[in-house]
Computed example of a mutant assay.
Amino acid sequence: MKSKWLIIIAAFLLVTNIGTVVYFMSADEETTGGDKGSVLSSFSGNVAQVGEQSISEGDWVERLKERYGKEVLTQMINKEVVSQLATKHDITVSDEELNREIELYHRMVGTSADGHEHPDVEQMGDKELKEEIKHAILLEELITKDVVINEDELRKYYKENEHLYDLKPLYQISQILVESKEEAEQVIQELENGSSFSTLARERSIDEFSAPSGGAMGWVDTTSNYVDPAYLEIIEDMETGKWRGPIQTEAGYGIVYLHDVKKGSKYEFEEVKGQIRRQLAIQQLDANFDPKQLWDELKVEWEYGSQ
């Protein structure tokens, strides 16, 4: 299942480089009259003034196009090609399938240590993430539509990996980690006096990963291997909106805060049959697949000449 989501992430990166698109498109929006009160207007068509030398809006946009233009246009064409071909071949994604894929995404990527390895994906808003996952599903369906996987093989995979579809409850937590029990008790006293948990985490926590984000550790389940076992032993019995501590951990003494809980669920074979088929089909295909290979089915013309 983890390899499935590595493929999804790869599809994201093939379809959209989030940082580049946001950077380029926001620049384009401003240069085409987006914000009338922006700094651009104060330079009379220039985007910067360095001493006596100005940098024009045109030069700026031209440099962006030279550096990112082909890549961004490729990504935009890829999205349009997938959208048109999905319509042509009557390929759709139901709301149930999309919601299930989003939940599995959060489980396999967003709630694990691996999530920190994909900050661009992790920082997507819900709407953007939904669009990208839907696009990735359509792309997978298109590239595997001619691959046949028999029912027995699908059921065999499900049976061997049934635990992956039996989703445990998720707990959204934050922590404040300090070196000694005495310091932890001082933090607890401040919390009881009304101090903000997130502010204290930034100021006092010694955990370099969670402290900058106010102690946030994201969504975890009780099998998570990057959360201290001492936390996992107690979060099941906590109330949301409450904290507990001090808790002795391997790295010091912690106070854990429970923000929210998501109930577990189990997906039966028929619910995930399509996903399994795509996953097994992709494993049979050329690992170097490029979405540009889909362009041949449509008449794609662009300013960079031949593909």
Rank of each mutant, 00 (worst) to 15 (best):
A86D: 14
N99Q: 12
I247Y: 12
E140W: 06
Q186W: 05
E250G: 02
Q75N: 09
I206A: 02
S26K: 03
I235W: 03
W219I: 09
E239S: 10
I149N: 05
V47M: 10
I188F: 00
E140G: 09
G125I: 01
K127N: 13
I173M: 09
T111V: 03
N161W: 07
M76F: 02
V256Q: 02
E57M: 14
A11D: 15
H259T: 14
K130A: 12
K156M: 01
S306Y: 07
A216F: 14
I133P: 05
T111M: 00
E303T: 11
G19T: 15
E96T: 10
T92V: 12
Y157V: 12
M1R: 11
P212A: 11
L170Y: 10
F209S: 11
K263G: 10
F197N: 07
Q307S: 15
L294C: 07
E62A: 14
S26M: 11
E153Q: 12
K65R: 02
E131D: 07
V256L: 01
A287Y: 13
R107A: 01
L177Q: 07
K292I: 01
E122I: 03
V272Y: 07
V81E: 12
M217Y: 04
V93M: 04
N161D: 02
E185G: 05
E71H: 06
G254Y: 08
P119S: 05
G252V: 00
L73R: 01
V121A: 05
H163N: 15
Q53K: 11
N78H: 09
N193Y: 03
S196W: 08
L73D: 02
E303M: 13
K156A: 01
E71C: 03
K292G: 04
G274V: 09
H163W: 13
Q53A: 07
V148A: 14
Q172G: 14
I143A: 12
I9E: 14
S196L: 06
A201N: 07
V261Q: 11
S83C: 04
R277A: 08
F289K: 06
Y257D: 14
E192I: 05
M1W: 10
D237C: 02
L13M: 05
A113K: 08
G33M: 07
D126Y: 11
G34T: 13
E236P: 09
P291D: 06
D28S: 06
K134R: 13
S94N: 13
